[in-house]
């Protein structure tokens, strides 16, 4: 169910630039997430999708810095906040879940206390009340016997349960924005299905805005309302989810979708490929960064392509839209 298009976005990122050693690894990224909307940011390793998310929540690695643009949360620029201000907002107004739940949980603190922590730190509840709400949240995310589990340490829980604990602690304060960076990549498919179902329920019930970072087109097809595709530091296409899959309008998106083996595809047939490899930062070509692998690129693609509208809410950074059909 796409969100109502009129409300002001919870998150509005505009022209974001993230630099590492003076090089723009995220190069002018813009995207919006509205209340109750799930936006997927799709890309391969090195595309800059995780750095985009980390700069929004103020957790960029030391070597990287946000060098330009804005990231507005309900109108307030997160990039202009001090570390202390961001810490006060994290958990309460925006929260993030990561791929590796084990690495993000404190191994020495019971999972119940970890979920209760953000309520206590932000003075939202007394310790007793916070613990009660933590157990309730653990039940909500599908942890069986939450009273008993709340007293256990992360190591006593399976990976799927730890992921649910992390989701519980991200959601217990009812944040406006949830950023999920490959939230199910490390999980088995049956656990992934549980987590995706849970995320869909929560955004429906609480109107949470969700930005999900993933490389998995199946996950995108399952939960996203809108999708932005990143390649080599830039967004190359943004579209409502059905349009993206039915009318992919950038050569990279088109090829990416056609390389995936499908459950209804012809078995044993050669799969479509994208030639070459994802270029590393030092070898990003000038102009369109996909042009070295693009079957329809020509000399004109050496100029940076503008984002052009190809449909309602659907934009593509390709100047050879006329030849898109040749890709098939």
């Amino acid at each position: 169910m796409p969100a109502d298009p009129t409300p002001r976005p919870v998150l509005a990122v505009a022209d974001l630039v993230v630099e590492i050693g003076g090089r723009a690894v995220v190069d002018g990224v813009s995207l919006e997430v509205k209340p109750g909307e799930v936006v997927a940011l799709v890309g391969e390793s090195g595309s800059g999708k995780s750095l985009t998310a980390l700069s929004v929540i103020g957790l960029l690695p030391k070597a990287a810095r946000a060098a330009g643009g804005r990231a507005l949360l309900d109108g307030e620029d997160l990039l202009a906040k001090s570390e202390a201000e961001l810490r006060a907002m994290r958990g309460r107004r925006l929260a993030m879940i990561f791929q590796e739940p084990i690495a993000s949980l404190n191994p020495l603190v019971s999972v119940g206390d970890q979920v209760a922590e953000s309520l206590i730190v932000h003075g939202e509840a007394s310790p007793a009340e916070a613990r009660r709400r933590a157990v309730e949240m653990l039940r909500r995310v599908g942890i069986p016997e939450p009273e008993r589990r709340a007293r256990q340490l992360p190591i006593e829980l399976s990976g799927g349960m730890c992921q649910r604990v992390m989701i519980a602690s991200a959601l217990v304060s009812g944040p406006r924005l949830l950023i999920a960076d490959e939230p199910t990549t490390a999980l088995d498919v049956t656990i992934q299905a549980q987590i995706l179902r849970l995320m869909k329920e929560l955004r429906r019930e609480r109107d949470t805005a969700v930005l999900v970072i993933t490389h998995d087109m199946g996950v995108v097809a399952d939960i996203a309302d809108r999708v932005s595709v990143m390649y080599a530091g830039r967004i190359v296409e943004t579209a409502p989810v059905f349009d993206l899959f039915e009318r992919p309008s950038h050569p990279y998106t088109r090829l990416l979708l056609s390389t995936i083996p499908r459950l209804d595809g012809t078995r044993k047939a050669d799969l479509r490929t994208v030639e070459g490899t994802v270029p590393d930062l030092a070898h990003w070509p000038a102009g369109c960064r996909f042009r070295t692998r693009c079957p329809i690129a020509d000399a004109g693609c050496a100029a940076v392509p503008a984002m052009v509208a190809v449909g309602p809410e659907h934009t593509s950074a390709c100047r050879r839209l006329d030849r898109l059909e040749e890709i098939g």
Partner: peptide, 22 residues
């Protein structure tokens, strides 16, 4: 049933076969 299909229309019209528990 748990593998999400890379096709939003097909994926969203599939019946759920939930597998709960660990």
């Amino acid at each position: 049933a748990a593998i999400p299909l890379p096709d939003p229309r097909a994926q969203r019209s599939r019946p759920d076969v939930p597998l709960d528990g660990e």
